[in-house]
């Protein structure tokens, strides 16, 4: 079976909107309904965060959502069950994003097998070194039709960008600045130079720009250079303040894309 991520990027080359949210936040059962609302609102792909006690690549917004989700009892097993439920109601690609340790304790092989069976299309594991991936997990993930996206940042050397491109499947996650996650108002000239450089590399895989995307301006700037954008922290803030998720999610997505 063809991977839904590969299919999406083959069909849509521009303006892809991928939205990140933390599993089990704001309440434990929201994982499923948020995904459904996002698809209805016109989002192309979702990334569901596996909560971890020590998320060092994340800023305060996502970190707090992790803590709340964990306090409510979120764990890998429950998440995979929720994803299976979500998959039955959803057409778009589902990516799971999380730190290595919870996945490792669950068992990487068991995790990948169950995730694939639940209808997950791709993984992002920010603290999995690419050499470890090649040595231990590449074969496994490929056999399960799970794509893997690695991160690159403005400080990633050119040669390494190309290495990451060669090892990625699906898409590349281009971090917009040297920073942890968090909303920003607009991109600087340096950031845009970096996006242009990525564009000029003509990489094998499409790249999505993430970190710091919070409004129409940053979204459209990201879309100008990459295949699209990933939105996380500002969506978590939206969920945190939301009284009516369906309506607020719709409005949030509209405010980005139009």
């Amino acid at each position: 079976m063809e991977n839904r991520i590969t299919k999406l990027f083959a069909r849509k080359k521009k303006n892809i909107l991928s939205v990140f949210y933390t599993a089990g936040f704001p309440t434990l059962q929201d994982t499923v309904s948020i995904g459904i609302h996002l698809e209805a609102a016109g989002v192309d792909m979702i990334e569901i965060g596996i909560p971890f006690s020590d998320p060092i690549a994340d800023g305060p917004t996502i970190q707090e959502s992790n803590k709340i989700a964990l306090n409510q009892g979120m764990n890998v097993e429950l998440l995979l069950n929720q994803v299976a439920e979500l998959r039955a109601k959803l057409k778009m690609p589902i990516v799971l994003m999380g730190y290595l340790n919870p996945v490792m304790q669950y068992g990487v092989e068991k995790f990948c097998t169950k995730a694939s069976a639940a209808g997950v299309d791709g993984l992002i594991l920010p603290d999995l070194p690419i050499d470890e991936y090649v040595k231990h997990y590449k074969e496994l993930m490929e056999s399960l039709n799970l794509s893997i996206s690695f991160l690159i940042s403005p400080t990633t050397p050119d040669a390494r960008i190309k290495k990451i491109d060669a090892l990625s499947s699906g898409f590349i996650y281009a971090v917009s600045s040297s920073s942890t996650t968090g909303a920003k108002k607009e991109f600087s000239k340096e950031q845009q130079d970096y996006f242009r450089k990525l564009q000029s590399f003509k990489l094998t895989h499409p790249f999505l720009i993430g970190f710091g995307i919070s409004n129409h301006k940053t979204y459209s700037q990201a879309c100008e250079y990459g295949a699209g954008a990933i939105v996380g922290s500002s969506f978590i803030t939206c969920l945190k303040e939301s009284k009516n998720q369906q309506e607020d999610i719709h409005q949030f997505v509209q405010s980005l894309i139009s």
Partner: peptide, 21 residues
Amino acid sequence: GKAGVLHGSKTLLMQTADGQV
């Protein structure tokens, strides 16, 4: 502790069965 990953290295780590530190 059990083997796990925290602060950039794989080491023995006090953690829950779910891998939370």
